[in-house]
């Protein structure tokens, strides 16, 4: 409950944030804090400097362009769940964001924080992989864009390297349906397993909680048999923990993939 000593800075621009992070190799970007502050309370990870991103202009913006929905990294789950732009351009994001944790956490927790923490049980990583989002990462040497399926590298590990920041998320506007299904610990709790599906040009299904990062399956057609056999063919080796032995997660992966796809197809 009690943090170790730490320094704090609240920069007013991306450049300032980047230089603070560059100057402090043990610095950490502090987004909504709904994961990081807990990690610091447990003193599992140490940080010498917290770079608070709450003061950076534009980081909470949601914009629609012709083809995409542009989301700032500090957009909260509550914003996602309610934004007219999101509901219009990619409603699955709103639907899933509304299932995360609880009101207080949704008010404070952010899209960028959710993605950058890359916890395999998070809701949003498989969704962003399924919908084919791209992430913009800024660093000392400029910015680059990474597709979602290359963004997540492992447990708590993403393409955002030391001294870098996730500065934007771009999601194609929907043409057809998306779906999401999960089994959680209690109603709307942490995911034991989840799956997101999209039938926007090809059938993309992303499985969560069964590997260190979302598992993307390109399914030949949007029927249950195809998706079940794609899951079976993925040779999943999910982790076992108190909430689910590996065999159970493997079972759920198939069931949830089919359910997510059913929703995606139904909404198409």
């Amino acid at each position: 409950m009690l943090l170790a000593s730490v320094e704090y800075a609240c920069p007013g621009s991306v450049d300032e944030a980047l230089s603070l992070l560059a100057a402090n190799p043990n610095g950490r970007a502090l987004a909504g804090g709904q994961t990081l502050v807990n990690v610091l309370k447990a003193r599992i990870a140490a940080a010498e400097l917290l770079v608070d991103l709450n003061g950076i202009p534009g980081f909470r913006e949601i914009r629609e362009t012709d083809g995409a929905l542009e989301l700032g990294p500090m957009v909260t789950y509550t914003q996602l769940a309610r934004s007219e732009e999101v509901l219009r351009s990619r409603p699955i994001l709103a639907e899933v964001a509304a299932q995360i944790a609880d009101v207080q956490v949704r008010n404070r927790g952010t899209l960028g924080g959710n993605l950058c923490s890359s916890d395999p049980t998070n809701h949003l990583p498989p969704v962003l992989v399924a919908v084919g989002a791209t992430m913009t990462i800024a660093g000392a040497s400029g910015t680059r864009t990474v597709p979602a399926e290359e963004f997540f590298l492992g447990v708590y590990l993403t393409a955002v390297g030391p001294g870098e920041l996730l500065t934007g998320i771009s999601v194609p506007r929907r043409q057809a349906g998306d779906g999401f299904a999960s089994v959680t610990i209690g109603a709307d709790g942490t995911c034991i397993a989840n799956a997101a599906a999209s039938v926007n040009g090809g059938v993309r299904v992303a499985l969560g909680c069964v590997s260190a990062k979302p598992v993307l399956l390109e399914v030949p057609s949007a029927d249950e048999e195809s998706v079940r056999s794609a899951v079976a063919g993925a040779q999943l080796d999910p982790p076992s923990d108190i909430h689910a032995p590996a065999a159970y997660r493997r079972q759920l992966a198939g069931v949830l993939a089919a359910r997510a796809l059913r929703q995606a197809s139904g909404a198409a």
């Binding site: 609880d102 610990i185 209690g186 109603a187 709307d188 709790g189 942490t190 923990d241 108190i242 909430h243």
Partner: peptide
Amino acid sequence: LLTPNFYDYHVPHALD
């Protein structure tokens, strides 16, 4: 202990 907090030791909330 694998359930040392309210993350892993899930107690019922209002939706449960």
